[in-house]
Write a protein that binds this DNA or RNA. Structure first.
Length: 630
DNA sequence: GTAGGGTTAG
């Protein structure tokens, strides 16, 4: 049990602080008993302190274990003192201490201890190096990382894959991707982890093409490789590719785990793919993933983004443990479904159960207020998030506030708000003001907004389109044309509106003006019949939303081929009566379509759920869940 | 006693 030399048991030890008595004392029976019966590292540490204070010979203490106490209550000074006492320490002991430091609150202590070990002349082994590398990783300390890398080479451990992989990860993690790549290229032996690390960092750099290239050469892929790539596609905004890869993955015959499930569900949320989402939900219940908080959180998000608020609520209600993410997802979900009051109630409940909100929670609350015109309430949240919860507003919160004020018609106040922001406004902030200017027909402020936007976000077509629409609505055609010319000159093209609907598991996509669908003839015939009935009910085509310089009748024809109209009519034809029609649109719903869909929900006796790029519209019995406030 | 993948927001 005793593993250090006689000198460390000397009573003149420097550890005898607060005690000048160098006289060697003998331990009492009680001490000896304690030495054999301590139950925890804590007790051992107390005993150690006691020995020091009372000048009892430290040789009696199992110092290896004392060192490992550091592993449980990491304290560098304490470790250093013990280290100074030990003449023939075993590297093993120090490794466990290093590990604790590397994983604890002060990873820098691991780096310090590592240099003590070196200074002492003790030979580090592969574990020593791996722990200190881990500390460097957590500290983003690439300088010391390089030094440790040097030791790896010097000590002849360069063929150790564990170490090499950790160094790869460290370089990538610290933003030194080129170094990681150089090392990867030089490695004589690589395993699946080496490849996975390189793919991870390519994804982090948003280089999904190269990441997928590496993945496709890989000879051996494990579950992590697949999950990494699927989640990489989602992170890089390619949910379709993520889902396709998941189908490939299923063919290989591997079983998804919780992490895979989270990645696929995120893709389903982005795509609005309810079919796959439901299938994964069942699978995850069967596999017992239901108790995993992240899985449940992602399920909530998936159901919300697929328009199934009730099912999202079901998952939320069944959760035994909820995190701030669960609550925030629910609040944000209710917000985009236009259920502001309920979102606020969920927030009250969240506070009542003692859950601390974060910045995302408040973003959800501000969205709820903004989508429903609750100006005062929104203002209160904005103030309270800082004063009551100590959360510093981010640019997103400012954007949301400008949105709230502008939509409510408080345009001057919104402008003042922007002028007084403590951080530089971005395109989203000015864009929110521009949106309000459109609704409330304020050309002057719109021009100011676009001036700022031309600088901040010059290639975003949406802003030019809004300004052009504002001019067109005011019948200022020349200016509308000038904006369109500006777009052309700058090479900005309007993103075509596109809507999709899934029928029998097949996704049908419609682009504005599209007459190429196999059922196009039937769709237009049905539409013509509908529009007759709609006109009787008071529908007047709003051609001002059509940007093109064309004849009025041509404009109408174009208006009738807006993507959301095509998708909904296709749904009417191809789905059973009285079932809901679910449509997804890449842009915001146009005003004319919004009016039309309200009427169609009555004529067709259907619930029509449209997810646009901002929120959900649920058309039912002639009205929309957004109460025309969007 | 050692390395790689996950949720709200965007």
């Amino acid at each position: 049990m005793l593993c250090y030399s006689s000198s460390s048991s000397s009573s003149s030890s420097s550890l005898h602080h607060g005690n000048n008595n160098n006289h060697l004392r003998l331990p009492t029976e009680q001490h000896l008993h304690l030495l054999q019966s301590f139950n925890s590292p804590f007790e051992l540490k107390q005993l150690h302190t006691h020995f020091i204070k009372t000048s009892l010979p430290l040789s009696l203490l199992p110092l290896t274990q004392v060192a490992s106490v550091c592993a449980l209550t990491p304290n560098f000074t304490y470790a250093q003192k013990i280290f100074q006492r030990v003449k023939t320490p075993e590297i093993f002991t120090w490794n466990s201490c290093l590990k604790a430091f590397a994983e604890g609150e002060s990873p820098n202590d691991a780096v310090l201890l590592f240099y003590q070990i070196i200074k002492f002349g003790l030979l580090p082994d592969s574990f020593t190096l791996s722990f200190v590398l881990k500390a460097c990783l957590r500290l983003l300390d690439v300088e010391n990382g390089r030094i440790v890398h040097g030791y790896v080479e010097k000590l002849g451990l360069s063929s150790n894959l564990f170490l090499k992989n950790t160094i790869l990860h460290l370089y990538g993690y610290c933003g030194e991707f080129d170094d990681a790549l150089k090392l990867f290229d030089k490695m004589s032996e690589r395993d699946v982890v080496s490849w996975n690390i390189m793919i991870t960092h390519l994804i982090k750099r948003d280089d999904i093409e190269r990441a997928f290239d590496l993945f496709s050469q890989m000879v051996v892929r494990n579950l992590r490789s697949w999950t990494l790539m699927i989640s990489g596609f989602v992170q890089c905004g390619k949910p379709k590719e993520a889902v396709d890869l998941f189908f490939e993955f299923e063919k290989v015959g591997l079983e998804p785990n919780e992490v895979t499930v989270v990645a696929v569900l995120s893709a389903c949320a982005d795509l609005g793919d309810l079919n796959l989402g439901r299938r994964i939900h069942e699978f995850s219940n069967k596999s017992g993933f239901g108790s995993n908080v992240r899985v449940s959180n992602t399920l909530i998000d998936m159901f919300i983004k697929c328009g199934c608020l009730e099912e999202a609520r079901g998952v939320f209600n069944e959760m035994k443990e909820r995190t701030v993410v669960s609550w925030s997802a629910m609040i944000q979900g209710l917000a985009i479904h236009g259920k502001a009051e309920e979102a606020l109630r969920v927030f009250d409940e969240m506070i009542r159960v003692g859950m601390k909100p974060n910045w995302v929670t408040f973003l959800g609350l501000l969205h709820a207020c903004s989508h429903m015109g609750l100006v005062e309430q929104g203002r209160e949240f904005f103030t309270s998030m800082t004063s009551d919860y100590g959360i510093v507003p981010k640019i997103e919160h400012y954007g949301s506030m400008v949105d709230l004020l502008s939509r409510a018609g408080l345009l001057q106040e919104a402008r003042e708000f922007i002028k007084n922001m403590p951080i530089k406004p971005n395109g989203v902030v000015w864009g929110a003001l521009l949106g309000g200017c459109k609704v409330h027909k304020n050309i002057e402020l719109a021009e100011e907004a676009i001036e700022n936007l031309s600088e901040l976000d010059p290639f975003n077509d949406g802003y030019y389109v809004v300004l052009s629409n504002i001019y067109a609505e005011a019948e200022r055609w020349e200016e509308a044309a000038r904006v369109r010319k500006l777009m052309r000159d700058r090479g900005v093209r309007k993103t075509p509106g596109a809507s999709s609907i899934t029928v029998d598991g097949v996704v049908h996509e419609f682009v504005a003006g599209d007459e190429s669908h196999p059922q196009a003839k039937k769709i237009f015939e049905t539409w013509d019949k509908l529009v007759e009935k709609m006109k009787v009910m008071g529908y007047v085509p709003n051609t001002s939303v059509v940007l093109l310089d064309i004849e009025e009748t041509e404009k109408e024809r174009f208006l009738y081929r807006h993507s959301e109209k095509l998708a909904v009519v296709f749904g009417l034809i191809n789905t059973p009566a009285r079932t809901p029609i679910r449509v997804m649109k890449n842009l915001r719903v146009c005003e004319d379509c919004h009016e039309a869909l309200k009427l169609i929900s009555t004529i067709g006796n259907r619930e029509i759920v449209v997810r646009d790029r901002n929120r959900f519209h649920c058309f039912k019995d002639g009205s929309c869940s957004c109460r025309d406030y969007w």
